[in-house]
Design a binder for these strands. Structure first.
Lengths: 331, 331
DNA sequence: GTGAAAGCGCTAACAG
DNA sequence: CTGTTAGCGCTTTCAC
C-alpha cells in the first residue's frame, strides 16, 4: 500500500497498471466494455496502492449521488434510537446508502438549516426526515427536485410524503382504557406545542378522546419532570390518573409518586423502553417499525420513479395495558 | 426562488448579481476582501434564487472537507444512543460538523468496509469510531493521513487514538460488591468474544476480579435471552447471583426469574437505561459522557495540530448499588 | 476494448 | 476590491 493511500488517484492507478485513466475508471466501476484481464489487473493495482476513490470528484463528474440523507432527532431518546436503527436496517435491505445528520432540540433554528443545507449540498438522491424539528416550509421548495419522506410525524405539506403514526387513534385507545377503568377525572401531562409538537399533538388527542371526563391539562417544557409538581397537585385535588404524552414523563411521575408515597394511576406513550414490561408501564406501543419500513420502501420506490401511494399514511400501534393504569378504587 | 433551486450555480448567482464568479464565491464564503455592498447584494441574490452550494464541487476544489465522520453501531441500544447523542452535542459545541454512517451487527464484514470507504472517500477531516465492529487493521493504514479516534472501546493499535472505558476497574467494582454481599458462587453471563468483544471483555474482567469466588461462566450469542436458561440452571445448582455483562441481559434474567418465581440476585452493566432506578437495577454506570467529550475534544485538538495526550485513555464510571444485587440470605 | 478530451461546480492564487 | 485563470479527481461521450 502506498504511504499515503488517500492521495492515490485513478491517474496513479492507471499509470501503474499501464492503461489510460478512462480505462482504469471503467475497470473500477465495472461499467462499459472492458477486458477481463485488464479489469483484474487494474483492480489489483488499486488494491495494492490502497486507492480510495474521491467521492467529491466522482459525484461531481457523475452529476449526483446515490446516497440518501437522513435527518434525525437526538438519539438519546430510545424512541428515536429505535427509529434510527430500523431505518438503517431497512435502507440497507433496500440497497440504499444512508448518511445521517442529527439535529438537537433547536426547533426552527440554525441547526436544521445547516443540516438540511449539508444534505442538499451533497446532492443526495433522496431525503428522509425523522425529526419534528424541521419545518415543512424549509423542505417544500426542494420537494420537486428530490423526493422527501417524513417519518414518524404528520406532514402538513401535500408536496412532501409522510409515514406517520395515527396519534389520534392512539389517544382514543388510552382514553377508552382510562374510561373503562373508571377514571372520571384525570390529568393530561405533555409538552406545549412550541416545545415538542409531537407531545402536544398527543396530549390534544387524549383530551379530545376523553370526552366527558374531567381533564386537567398540564402543558410543560421539555424536561421530563417539568410539570410533575402541577400534575401531583391535581392528583391531590382529586384526579385519579396522570396520563402522560411520553413514557419518559411517565417515569418522572412514577418517581415523584414513589417519593411522596402517593398512589395514583399513570399511563405513558411510546412503548419502546426496554424493561417497560418489568415496570408494568401502561402505555401505547407506537409502530416505529412499520413507519420506518414504509418510509424507506416509499423512498426507494420514488427513486425508481414509481409512485402510487397516497402521499400521507398513518400507522397504528397497540395498547400495552400494563399495571400502572389501574381501576379506580371506590371509597 | 428559482423553479429548480438545486440547479442554481454560483455562476447563476454571479450573473444575476452582476459580478464575476470568484467575487460571488468570496461574498458567499466571506473570505478575502469584499465590499460590504457587494456581499449583501450577492447574498440576497443567492437567497432569492435558493442557491445551495454543491459540496462535491467545493470540497473538490478546496481539496478536502471540514466534516468529521462518525462510524456508529446500531442505535437501538440505549447505550449507543446515549453515546451518539453526546458525541453529536460535543461536536457541535466544538464547531465540528458530523456525518454519521452506521454499521449493523456484521463484525469484520462488508458493511464496515463500505462504511469506512464512504467516509474516507468523502475525505473527511477526521474520524470517530464508536463501534467495536471495525477492526483496527482496517483503520490503521489511514491513521497517518487522517486523525482517528476510537471511542468507547479499547484500541489495540498504537497508531489510533482512543477514549475508552476502564472495564477492568468496573469489573472490580462489581466483583467487590458481590463479595461484600456474601456471594460465594455466582454466574457470569455475557457474550462470547466473537459475538460482542465488549461484553466478552467485561465478563472476563468480572471473572478476573472475582478471585476465589466460584464462577459459572455462561458465554452466549447476541440475543439478550441467550444463555438465560443456563444461568438459571446454575442458580438452581447453588449460585446466588447472576452477574450480567449488560443491562439488557440483566432484564432478560429478571424476566425469567419473575416468570419462574425464583428469587436471585442479579447485576448488569451500562447504567444508561431510563427508569433503571425504578427497577432498582444494580449495575455500573459507564462514563459515556466523559469518553464522548474527550474523544471529540481530542479530535478537535488533532485537527488543530495539537497533540500531547497519551494516545489511549480510559474513563471510570461508578457503581449503582440498586436493589437487584442483595445480600445472600443464610439459611 | 481502449484512449483522448471535455467538462461537473467550485476555489484559490494571481494580476489588475 | 474584483476579474481572470487554472485546476481539484473523476466520468463520459466520442473516435480509434
Amino acid at each position: 500500500m502506498a504511504d499515503r493511500p488517500l492521495q492515490v488517484t485513478v491517474e496513479d492507478v492507471a499509470r501503474e497498471a499501464g492503461v489510460s485513466r478512462s480505462t482504469a475508471t471503467r475497470a473500477l466501476r465495472g461499467h462499459g466494455r472492458i477486458a477481463e484481464a485488464t479489469r483484474t489487473r487494474v483492480e489489483s493495482v488499486a488494491g495494492r496502492l490502497g486507492y480510495v476513490p474521491n467521492l467529491a470528484a466522482s459525484d461531481l463528474a457523475a452529476g449526483g449521488t446515490g446516497v440518501v440523507g437522513l435527518m434525525l432527532r437526538d438519539a438519546a431518546n430510545p424512541v428515536y434510537g429505535a427509529l434510527f436503527s430500523r431505518i438503517e436496517v431497512a435502507a440497507r435491505d433496500a440497497g440504499l446508502e444512508l448518511v445521517t445528520v442529527t439535529i438537537g432540540a433547536d426547533p426552527g433554528g440554525e441547526q436544521q438549516v445547516q443540516a438540511l443545507g449539508r444534505l442538499l449540498g451533497m446532492r443526495v438522491a433522496g431525503l428522509l426526515v425523522a425529526t419534528g424539528g424541521v419545518d415543512s416550509h424549509r423542505l417544500e421548495p426542494f420537494a420537486s427536485e428530490v423526493p422527501i419522506v417524513r417519518v414518524g410525524r404528520d406532514e402538513p405539506s401535500a408536496a412532501i410524503h409522510a409515514e406517520s403514526y395515527d396519534e389520534a387513534w392512539h389517544g382514543g385507545l388510552l382514553a377508552a382504557r382510562a374510561h373503562e377503568l373508571g377514571h372520571a377525572r384525570v390529568v393530561v401531562l405533555g409538552a406545549e406545542a412550541a416545545t415538542s409538537f409531537g407531545e402536544h399533538e398527543r396530549a390534544e388527542a387524549l383530551v379530545a378522546s376523553l370526552g366527558a371526563t374531567r381533564v386537567d391539562r398540564v402543558a410543560t417544557g421539555a424536561a421530563p419532570d417539568d410539570g410533575v409538581r402541577d400534575a401531583l397537585a391535581a392528583v391531590d385535588a382529586g384526579a385519579t390518573a396522570v396520563l402522560c404524552a411520553s413514557d419518559t414523563r411517565q417515569l418522572a411521575v412514577l418517581r415523584a409518586l414513589a417519593e411522596r408515597g402517593v398512589d395514583c394511576s399513570t399511563s405513558g406513550w411510546d412503548g419502546i423502553l426496554p424493561g417497560l414490561d418489568l415496570l408494568g408501564l401502561s402505555t401505547v406501543r407506537v409502530p416505529v417499525e412499520s413507519a420506518a419500513d414504509a418510509a424507506v420502501e416509499r423512498l426507494a420506490a420514488l427513486l425508481d420513479g414509481d409512485v402510487d401511494l397516497p402521499i400521507h399514511r398513518r400507522w397504528r400501534g397497540e395498547l400495552l395495558p400494563g399495571r400502572t393504569l389501574r381501576p379506580v378504587e371506590h371509597a
